[in-house]
Structures are given as structure tokens and as C-alpha cells.
Write a protein that binds this DNA or RNA. Structure first.
Length: 190
DNA sequence: AAAGAGATGGTCT
DNA sequence: GACCATCTCTTTT
């Protein structure tokens, strides 16, 4: 089975367009020297003209990575407790990204079970905060290049991506209070 | 099975 | 000082 890094060019573009293409790729972590991988099954698009986006109000210290080049990880602290990770999709200065909402474990499931406190297998990576906990993604990983072989967090293509269009569910995003009807949540049908 | 609430801290106005 | 791109546990139907 061939495994190649996701090319930066594939990630560069309008977030709602790139979103479905990101589905089915493999998120690979070697945080702590331990391999964990999972298939990305749910993402949400955010961009600057979108009131729900962290970049809506322009550049700040927190969102600077989102305004950078595609392929880098934007990690932020959610509700003071959880981490959430995004993959930047836009060109420099555009402020677009895809929130990694859910994945399905592929490798390192034992590690994930430990990190997730022994929860049911179906609940190991089925939310943005849970996903970061499962992969060991911390605030330190803000800015990491997921296209670079030397990164602890990488995005890989094992030939299974992307899913057929009729297998992609589209709907409104979760947990936001603005632009609640914009259908920029993409999920692989199960 | 569904609904409610508390935790917890950075970020921005 | 208000507002969260959430999760888990508890309480109620």
C-alpha cells in the first residue's frame, strides 16, 4: 500500500471546495514517538468573509497561522479546555482553513484508547477536541506543516481518497452562533 | 433517550 | 467582562 504526503497544491484553494477532497486522507501523528493514524471523515470550512470564522475580524496573534500558506496546522484552545486543529487551505493572506472534526482510527488504537481514557471505540476521535486528544495535538503544534516529512503531524494519501460525491454528506456547521445555516460541514457517509 | 449544566482560560472589545 | 468552531457527567423523561 503506497503512502504519499498530501501535496500542498491539493490543499490550496477555497476551503468549502477543498473540504470534500480532504475527506478520506490519513492524519498521521508521531507525537511522543508513538505512531497514531486515522482516516479523516468530517471537516468544516471557515474563511475570512464568514462571520463564524476566527479570521473574520482580520489578523490577530492567535489566528496568524490561518493567514499563512496552505498546509499548516492552526491549533487553538477551545472553551479553555480542549484543543481544536485546522488545516490551512488558502493562499497567504486569505485566512481560510478546514477544522478537523472527526476521524476513524487506523493505526495505534491502543495508544488512542489510553489517551482517551478508555472510552468506547466509536468515541475515540468523533469530535474536534477528542481528535486532538487522540492524536496528541497540543497548542505547540500551531503552525506545523502537515505536508513536511519532518513534522510530527502529517497528512498522507494512501490511495483511498477522496470518497465519491454521493458519499459526502453536506450540512450546517456545529457549535457556532453566527452563519449557522451555511452548509460547510462535510462528512463521509457511513 | 434526551436535555441540562459545569468546567476552564485565552482572546478580543 | 463577554464570548466561545467542546466534552463529560448528571438529571430528567
Amino acid at each position: 500500500m503506497s503512502l504519499r504526503p498530501v501535496d500542498r497544491a491539493e490543499l490550496s484553494g477555497d476551503a468549502p471546495v477543498v473540504g470534500p477532497r480532504l475527506l478520506g486522507t490519513l492524519l498521521v501523528s508521531r507525537v511522543g514517538g508513538v505512531l497514531v493514524s486515522g482516516r479523516v471523515v468530517e471537516v468544516e470550512a471557515y474563511r475570512q468573509d464568514d462571520p463564524a470564522s476566527h479570521t473574520y475580524g482580520g489578523r490577530t496573534a492567535r489566528n496568524r497561522v490561518m493567514f499563512g500558506p496552505a498546509g499548516h496546522l492552526y491549533v487553538y484552545l477551545s472553551y479553555g479546555i480542549h484543543r481544536c486543529a485546522n488545516v490551512v487551505t488558502g493562499a497567504e493572506g486569505e485566512g481560510q482553513a478546514l477544522l478537523l472534526r472527526a476521524a476513524v482510527p487506523v493505526e495505534g488504537v491502543e495508544t488512542v484508547r489510553t489517551r482517551r481514557g478508555g472510552r468506547r471505540d466509536a468515541e475515540l476521535m468523533d469530535g474536534p477536541g477528542k481528535l486532538c486528544q487522540a492524536f496528541g495535538i497540543e497548542l505547540d503544534h500551531d503552525g506545523v506543516d502537515v505536508c513536511s516529512p519532518s513534522s510530527e503531524i502529517r497528512l498522507m494519501d494512501d490511495g483511498a481518497a477522496p470518497p465519491a460525491p454521493d458519499r459526502v454528506l453536506v450540512g450546517p456547521r456545529v457549535g457556532i452562533t453566527k452563519a449557522i445555516d451555511t452548509p460547510w460541514r462535510f462528512r463521509i457517509a457511513r
